[in-house]
């Protein structure tokens, strides 16, 4: 177990090193940070001086070496716009994004499992066709359109739910502010979470359905019937657990994806999260912030995948044993 985590940590470091290299390598092509940083009135000499001070005139490798040296000490550079450490800026926004992803994940879990099982058990029913047809629709409609439609109906026309921002927040630890503890905060979460979930939900329903169909034809399910067990026990204990093994693996990657791609949802709902921040950073050519964002997202992926592998090991006894034997 300890060995496994250590191995994962090593792999994570390699991944983040590669990401930082790529991110750093493309920053020269993103535009001139000075144009955004200083006003029109600043003369060319002053610009050149500022470039020297920021180290932008040094050769690439020197700049990269400096960056790595600082990065190892936890300093990913200072945001040009916020004039604050880039990592700190991102981490203050991370909580908003994670809350959004958490809500969307809950929706996905509580809808995809029953719907997936239902469509697998009744493959030819009318409801099944309805669910599957709708899921094609869900995959085909882009997130921003879903989001705009939701805002139009529930916020503008009906006026039931707020359309932007996070509402009333309760401070937690380490600067984390949560919207899950107030009614207003929860109301603000509903629409963004639904629109973020909308693109993944059909995928999960279909994934669970196809895995479940396969598991239901397995011999041990037939044996469970022959044992005289009740239908619910066979479906929800015997079959579902086996169904979820591959779903967990895919699910982990997809949750990582959601963290990285909340940009569209956050933009439509003016959600003060990481995605929104990233978009702003790109328009402002705030390179340290962009690089830091990519590294943080890489770290989220590594952490989520490690957690997924651990959960997988808990469910699947064969994996757990080979690992403890190592």
């Amino acid at each position: 177990m300890a060995l496994f985590l250590l191995k994962r940590l090593g792999q994570g470091l390699v991944v983040m090193f590669i990401i930082s290299t790529i991110a750093f390598a493309i920053q020269d092509n993103l535009g001139d940070p000075l144009r955004e940083l200083v006003g029109q009135a600043v003369s060319e000499q002053e610009r050149e001086k500022l470039r020297d001070e920021l180290g932008l005139n040094d050769p690439f490798l020197v700049q990269y070496g400096r960056f790595l040296k600082n990065a190892v000490q936890g300093d990913l550079g200072t945001s040009y716009f916020f004039k604050e450490p880039a990592l700190k800026v991102i981490l203050t926004k991370l909580s908003a994004t994670l809350e959004l992803v958490f809500g969307a994940t809950l929706i996905i879990i509580f809808l995809s499992i029953p719907l997936g099982v239902y469509t697998a058990v009744h493959p030819n029913g009318f409801t099944t066709k309805l669910i599957l047809g709708w899921s094609i629709l869900g995959i085909s409609i882009p997130v921003f359109l879903t989001a705009i439609l939701l805002v139009y109906f529930f916020a503008v026309t009906l006026g039931w739910l707020p359309s932007y921002g996070r509402g009333e927040l309760v401070p937690m630890f380490w600067g984390w502010e949560t919207g899950y503890l107030t009614l207003d905060g929860l109301a603000h979460l509903v629409l963004p979470c639904i629109s973020l979930a909308s693109i993944m939900l059909p995928l999960f329903i279909r994934l669970i359905r196809s895995e479940m169909v396969e598991v239901l034809s397995a011999e041990y399910i037939k044996f469970a019937h022959a044992k005289g067990l009740s239908r619910n026990r066979i479906l929800y204990i015997h079959a579902l657990k086996n169904t979820l093994l591959p779903v967990i693996t895919v699910g982990g990657v997809q949750i990582g994806n959601m963290v990285a791609y909340t940009i569209l949802t956050e933009t439509v709902f003016q959600w003060p999260g990481m995605g929104f921040l990233f978009l702003e950073a790109v328009t402002r050519v705030d390179t340290p912030l962009i690089v830091a964002f990519l590294i943080v997202v890489g770290a989220v992926f590594v952490v989520v995948n490690t957690l997924v592998d651990l959960i997988y090991g808990l469910i699947n006894p064969t994996v757990r044993l080979t690992r403890s034997a190592q």
């Binding site: 037939k222 005289g228 015997h238 657990k241 064969t318």
Partner: peptide
């Protein structure tokens, strides 16, 4: 189906061909 469930296991036991696949691997 319900009446049949009372018979399976209690009155009729079933042994399948492949012992490798007739037990649920996760329990």
């Amino acid at each position: 189906a319900k009446q049949m469930r009372e018979i399976r296991g209690r009155k009729i036991g079933f042994i399948f061909q492949d012992p490798m696949t007739s037990l649920n691997p996760l329990f």
